[in-house]
Amino acid sequence: MQRRYDIDALRAIAFALLILYHCAMLYVADWGWHLKSPHLSETLQLPMLFMNRWRMDLIFLISGLSVHFLLRGSSLGRFVAQRSWRLLLPLTFGCLVIVPIQPYAQGVANGLVEPGFVDFLLRYYRFQPWPQGAFDGWEYGFTWNHLWYLAYLWVYTLVFAALLPLFRNAWGRRLHGALASLRGWALIALPALPLAVASILLQPHFKDTGDLIHDWHRHAIYFTVFLYGYWLGNDSGLWQELVRLRRRTLALALGLFGFYLAMITLLPEEVSDGVQYAIWTARSLYIWAALCAILGWSHRLLNRPFRWLPWATEAVYPWYVLHQSLIVLIAYWILPLKFGPVAEPAIVLLGTVAGCFVLHEIIRRVAVLRPLFGLKARRVKADRPAPAALAVGTA
């Protein structure tokens, strides 16, 4: 089966945007984050809101696409074991080693943690509650911060594995066939309806807290798009339809975002249930239209073996694990130095990229570090090159 280069490229681009997004969280006005710069911008809210509504949906959809390809040629038990190893080990290592600088910096900035990182770690590893509001997750004694995605993805993997026999029976094949047969406006609109229903039913009752146990609104959204990715898979008809509709879905996504933005900007905070449901429905339609546009354009433009793609494909996981701790650490160091509104974000962004690059180059060369950052063991090169047929088959 030919490798889908567009999916590899789209994954790399999606996580690059995530790094840029988290850098910008330092500077967007009225949005809380672990640290905030004095150089805040209300103008930044518009592009941040534009990306915020679909950025994690896209990542979970790509995760579902990856599951579709990983399951080919692998037993279900082996798939679950391998995914658990590649998700839980980096999650555990990241929570214990990479993430702690974030609650430390936030706690010191909030005046609720005494300076001194070693003393903080000795207290942190006791996993007991901290003073209220010290940092995100203070009540649990620790936090996974940006690594919540790994925990959610692992749970979705287990739930998916349990449901897979249903997806493969007659009912599941009919459902997949119905989705694969969608064309035109049906493909653009119908998959958005479950997202809208989930928001209407669940968002009033469950806040987006990152609490795995009580985050049922986001679970409904993210697991749905995760399944969409799996069902989308390598169906050539669906992908060609997404390519055909790419201009239409892009225009629709931009129009829906404008409509959604007008509603949340011009309407008062307290609105009737009917108006609130309309806002959430417009948001869901925007999310799915944006995803369709991204998938269509990426398949049209990115499905080719770019020279940078093998390196970027490997770099995604370590960069994801490292980036937010580097952002927070660099900001913690330079905010007191009072750089200007141009120099400061430039230092944060360039420092984060440089730090991720250097650390990744070290990680990829050290066998014991590779699995801690989600990388597979480095293949041992044979003394003689493999025959061409075998080389292709193991790619």
Rank of each mutant, 00 (worst) to 15 (best):
I7S: 07
C23I: 14
M25F: 13
L26H: 01
D30Q: 06
P38E: 00
P38H: 01
F50V: 06
W54H: 11
W54M: 09
R72A: 04
R72K: 11
S75I: 04
Q82I: 10
S84G: 14
P90I: 14
A109C: 05
A109N: 08
G111S: 05
P131D: 03
A134R: 09
H146A: 06
Y149K: 10
L150F: 15
A151C: 08
A151L: 15
R168L: 00
L175W: 10
H176P: 05
A178E: 14
L179F: 15
L179C: 11
A180E: 07
R183G: 05
R183A: 04
R183P: 01
R183Q: 13
I188D: 07
L193T: 13
V197A: 13
S199K: 12
P204M: 13
H205W: 15
H205D: 14
R218I: 04
F226E: 01
L227Y: 02
Y228V: 15
L232R: 06
L232H: 06
G233R: 02
N234E: 02
S236Q: 06
L242H: 01
V243Y: 03
R246A: 00
R248D: 03
A253S: 10
G255H: 02
F257G: 01
F257A: 07
A262R: 06
A278M: 08
I279G: 10
T281E: 02
T281S: 07
R283L: 09
S284L: 02
A290E: 02
S298E: 10
H299G: 11
P305F: 04
F306N: 07
E314M: 09
Y317G: 09
Y320C: 08
L322N: 04
V328Q: 05
I330C: 11
F357T: 14
I363Q: 08
I363A: 01
L372D: 13
K381L: 10
A382C: 02
D383P: 11
R384N: 05
P385C: 03
P387H: 05
P387F: 00
A391H: 12
G393H: 14
